[in-house]
């Protein structure tokens, strides 16, 4: 599979940008749902908030795409750097007792991956218009990274025993 450096048209770039945001939103919503099911409502609210940010960014991408004919790509045809989109949280990186610090770290990792992804396209695309757009998107992602770093700095670190549950819902027998 070819990499993001081969994204050669604005339409293809925007199709990637939209899906990057939308899949990130879908995963955050899924994580929020599972946190609600497991009674970690603070983290559920945080994931909903992240989903809301993503939804707003997806709308901005749609606004840029107005009047353009974007390609419909299959999930496996996207030119991501990894198995999933750069801002899609890994399904394995959550825990029912996770703290705000953990959730913020998940979000920070996602935003940093998004920033790196756009920066790579900005450096390597053969299309000047794509490079310019990617540079703008990378700059915006960098702002999100800075914002999350500030939030993390203002957030209480997780206790050493954060995952110890005196009454665990599931106990190996």
């Amino acid at each position: 599979m070819s990499g993001p450096e081969t994204i050669a048209s604005v339409e293809e770039f925007l199709a990637h940008a939209y899906t990057l945001e939308q899949e990130s939103v879908d995963r955050y919503e899924e994580l929020a749902d599972v946190m609600e099911v497991h009674n970690n409502h603070d983290i559920a609210a945080l994931f909903r908030k992240f989903a809301g940010f993503g939804r707003k960014h997806a709308s901005e991408v749609m606004r840029l795409a107005r009047g353009r004919h974007l390609p419909r790509l299959q999930p496996w045809e996207f030119k991501w750097l990894d198995a999933e989109g750069p801002e899609t949280s890994n399904v394995f990186d959550v825990h029912y007792l996770m703290t705000p610090m953990h959730a913020l770290q998940v979000a920070l990792d996602n935003e940093q991956s998004g920033c790196d992804y756009y920066a790579l396209i900005a450096r390597t695309s053969v299309n000047a218009e794509v490079r310019t757009l990617a540079q703008e998107f990378a700059a915006e992602e960098a702002q999100h990274v800075s914002m999350l770093q500030r939030w993390i700095a203002d957030t209480e670190p997780a206790a050493a025993d954060w995952d110890e549950d005196p009454d665990p819902p599931q106990m190996p027998e």
Partner: peptide, 16 residues
Amino acid sequence: IKPIWCPGCGHFGVLT
């Protein structure tokens, strides 16, 4: 219906 799988369960990836 919200899945009741544990957070971190691989089955979420299969559902997706």
